[in-house]
Amino acid sequence: MTARASSRGRGAALRCTLPLALTLAAGPARGENLVTSLSTTQIAITSTYSGVDVALFGVIEKDLATPARQAPYDVVVTVRGPRATTLVREKQRLGFVYVNRRQRRFVDLPIYLAVVSTRPVDEIASRQARLAYGLGLEAELTPPGVDAARDAANARFREALRRLNGENGLFVEKSTARFVSPNVFRATFPLPATTPVGRYQVEATVLSGGTFVARSSTRFHVVKTGFEQAVVDLAHNQPLVYGLAAAALSLLFGWTATVVFRRD
């Protein structure tokens, strides 16, 4: 088989395997079926919360009819947190002072994004396949249908966003997912202390030799509980009561301190 023929074959496989895999997952299994489970489905933020590790376990189910794969399995787990619009600004010299001059708006971007894979994603699949299946941070941040020339100006901002969010733990890309047995894998992703509350979607994709095999999606929630939730509820539902209470507490604490520390 020539290199050209094989690359064409892979392209064709890419286009047809996704619907095929979905049909098969629903019907009697001939291809692989992916079953995943999270270590937790609800993360409660309490007064001592300072970040947590969440693990995803996956089993690749096969039966006798499933054809054997040439290449070993690769897994890419993508976690997408609640979405918001993010502004990236750049300071530039104007005269002799530095001011924010240029900015780019990233609309509806997950605040938390984690990609945990068995190998670096650019070794697992081609760029085309990564963009098609949304694998890796680059694919996640690249808007679909934008031509490369126009997009070049945005690349700096995308890179800065990736770097800054990487530093504060909101963007994670690492290849620490492991197969604990030939068909069972585990991927752990860290939620930082500043992670937002809301719904997190976890998507696991199995590939083999750069070809799509199966995909499974699950979700978990990050919620505030008890005192934390009560504070937020009061602040939003009864803002006047909340404000007056805060003001009253200030007066009380200020007065208490005077009494406690009174020496003369």
């Binding site: 609640p82 918001a84 619009t85 993010t86 502004l87 600004r89 002799f96 002072v97 530095y98 966003l161």
Partner: peptide
């Protein structure tokens, strides 16, 4: 802050509601 070249020229700001 105004005249010294910033160590990190980029900054991130979240705008709009989270969902």
């Amino acid at each position: 802050e105004l005249v010294v070249q910033p160590h990190e020229p980029f900054s991130i700001m979240r705008v709009g509601p989270e969902r």
